[in-house]
Amino acid sequence: MIRFSDVSVRYPTGTLGLDSIDLEIPDGQFVVVVGLSGAGKSTLVRTINGLVPVTSGTLEVGDRMVSGAGKRKLRQLRAEVGMIFQSFNLVTRTSVMNNVLLGRLHATSTLRSLVGAWKASDVELAFEALERVGIVDKAYVRASQLSGGQQQRVAIARVLAQEPQVILADEPVASLDPPTANQVMRDLQRINRELGITTVVNLHFLDLARTYGERIIGMRGGKVVFDGTADQADDAVFESIYGRSLTAADVLPGDEEPAVSTDEGLAP
């Protein structure tokens, strides 16, 4: 259970990132957060693992308090909350294996990690994670030699190696082409279903949100403006989230089943 109680985030620049959010995400749910850039979806996701500190209110993940946690507590929390990024964030100059083992750092002593003396059990975990995303054959290939979709699967494997209770994904498919984007989303969905890991994903594309989201949260100006199932989230709802009519750009191009009509999309 992730529980936001009256959570606000104000950045040092004065921008209000989150505006008194109240939200409960039960264990095992697949949540998709939508909204324009700057609406606060990234901030929402990053407060959950403490990458963005909460200014006021309380935020709990499981039985841990995120708001006001010290460095040590945050590290323990982050060990249990994995994160996937838009730009994959792999160390491209090193092997896929080393990248996945980055997910085991929290359970590795500093001395061991300095010399790269990974525990056999950690290497086994990394292999299983790579098998789960289907690229175990690339284990000893340099990350820079993989395609975008493969790199994002390595990033998912890194998260799985953490054995997390929660997976956060910040625009995980924004840098990928449409078929690959669908594949990565399917991977996330499958992992959520097979392992029951709570998953919170930021998405920009509406059709992906509707196809994969068990629950959809719409954000605008740092506030939650919609919270419901994928079926409830029709075009009218999206237009209210986006504050304008939908355009072709809001739908993933070349997708098999375009979910939104784009007739009125020529307006401004």
Binding site: N49, A79, R93, L102
Partner: peptide
């Protein structure tokens, strides 16, 4: 690229571990 450093941070790595596994492999060459 600060991305991998952020990823290591998000995975709960300690500062020395971030230097060793996220910074050094990128900068060493």
């Amino acid at each position: 690229d600060p991305g991998p450093v952020e990823a290591a941070l998000a995975a709960g790595a300690r500062p020395v571990q971030r230097m060793r596994w996220a910074i050094l492999p990128q900068a060493l060459p």
